[in-house]
């Protein structure tokens, strides 16, 4: 079942927290809502679940307008950051909760609980109480509980942010596997972590300041960000203020050969260059500057180089003989690795 936001606006006490969102999640698709806190991503999810009422616009599930439906009639699975497992119920009772509200038969309930626990690898813990489980296990139970009612739509609100880094990557793989096993279920996944979004989602909707900034496949977002926010939030690109010239742009008194598309010569623009496409040493599109900070990150070194008053980040393969702070260095990048955005494409 698909989800459609039809210019959904949510406001609290006159504060607009979600500004006319238009977004469609196809049936069976995993859509990540990615953005910093306060970007409106959780509000969008809660509007689907029915916990916030839009002041205008409609929410559609499988083509049906559910804007006025209370949460308990929407038939949506939901997993939240705190898991919200009922502490006074055992694991199997938690998972059976949704089935009992639907007055499912005893045998069916038992069977579906077993199925959901099997799917999440928690069958061995059915008789435990939530407080006897680790964070990761509680997360699996929360997912099992949401899946037991066989929802067509699963909402996940920062489901991994309470887990530590190692568990997180494991759970991420689990979620990907779940989606392969339940290919018809749409998933709306709210996160502030770009790695989770890039790994899991078919498409990502980047949100900031209550608005949708850009929606596309991870590759699209990465390769051709539409604005500065997407460029820097997804993949942490360098955004450099440049002036468009003929067949290139001017930055810090240097002429850089990049595709200017249909940009008008003389206009101000923003050049996005990912740190990992920048190389150290001489080459085409060369910039010279002074090393201000150097961080060793195992396989790579990150350099912060000051070029004419602008800080440029470069991730280079681990250096045997890294430059010292204050050393002059040269940086370069290939023309096709840079994206030119019109100036002021900060927020839509």
């Amino acid at each position: 079942m698909g989800i459609r936001f039809d210019s959904v606006t949510v406001a609290y006490d006159g504060n607009v927290v979600l500004d006319s969102l238009d977004l469609t999640v196809e049936p069976g698709e995993v859509m990540a809502l990615l953005g910093p806190s306060g970007s409106g991503k959780t509000t969008a999810l809660r509007a689907v679940a029915g916990f916030v009422r839009p002041v205008s616009g409609r929410v559609l599930l499988g083509g049906r307008d559910v804007t006025d439906l209370p949460p308990y009639q929407r038939g949506i699975g939901m997993v939240v950051q705190s898991y919200a497992l009922f502490p006074h119920m055992r694991v199997d009772e938690n998972v059976a909760f949704g089935l009992k509200t639907r007055r499912a038969g005893k045998t069916e309930t038992r069977q579906r609980v077993a199925e959901a626990l099997e799917l999440t690898g928690m069958a061995a813990y059915a008789r435990r109480h939530p407080r006897e489980l680790s964070g990761g296990q509680q997360q699996r139970v929360a997912i099992a509980r949401a899946l037991a009612i066989r929802p067509d739509v699963l909402l996940l609100d920062e489901p991994l942010s309470a887990l530590d880094a190692r568990l997180r990557s494991g759970m991420l793989a689990e979620l990907a596997r779940l989606h392969r096993e339940l290919p018809d279920m749409s998933m709306l996944y709210v996160t502030h972590d770009q790695v989770e979004a890039l790994t899991l989602a078919d498409r990502i909707a980047v949100m900031d300041a209550a608005r949708l900034q850009q929606c596309g496949t991870p590759r699209e977002l990465y390769r051709s960000p539409k604005n500065e926010f997407t460029a820097s939030f997804v993949g942490g690109a360098n955004v450099l203020p440049v002036t468009v010239g003929c067949g290139g742009v001017g930055f810090a008194g240097t002429e850089l050969k990049v595709d200017t598309g249909n940009a008008v010569a003389g206009a101000r623009a923003t050049l996005c260059v990912r740190p990992h496409v920048i190389g150290l040493g001489q080459g085409p599109n060369q910039l010279t500057g002074v090393v201000r900070e150097i961080q060793w990150r195992g396989a790579t070194h990150r350099l912060y180089v000051e070029v004419d008053g602008h800080s440029v980040m470069a991730d280079v393969r681990e250096l045997k003989d890294p430059p010292a702070l204050g050393d002059p260095v040269s940086l370069h990048f290939a023309a096709e690795d840079a994206v030119l955005l019109p100036a002021g494409a900060g927020h839509e």
């Binding site: 679940a49 029915g50 916990f51 209370p70 949460p71 308990y72 009639q73 929407r74 038939g75 949506i76 699975g77 939901m78 939240v80 919200a84 009922f86 909760f97 949704g98 509200t101 639907r102 509980r145 949401a146 009612i149 909402l155």
Partner: peptide, 8 residues
Amino acid sequence: QAAASLGA
């Protein structure tokens, strides 16, 4: 909210 989303 979890309970409501489960149909209660």
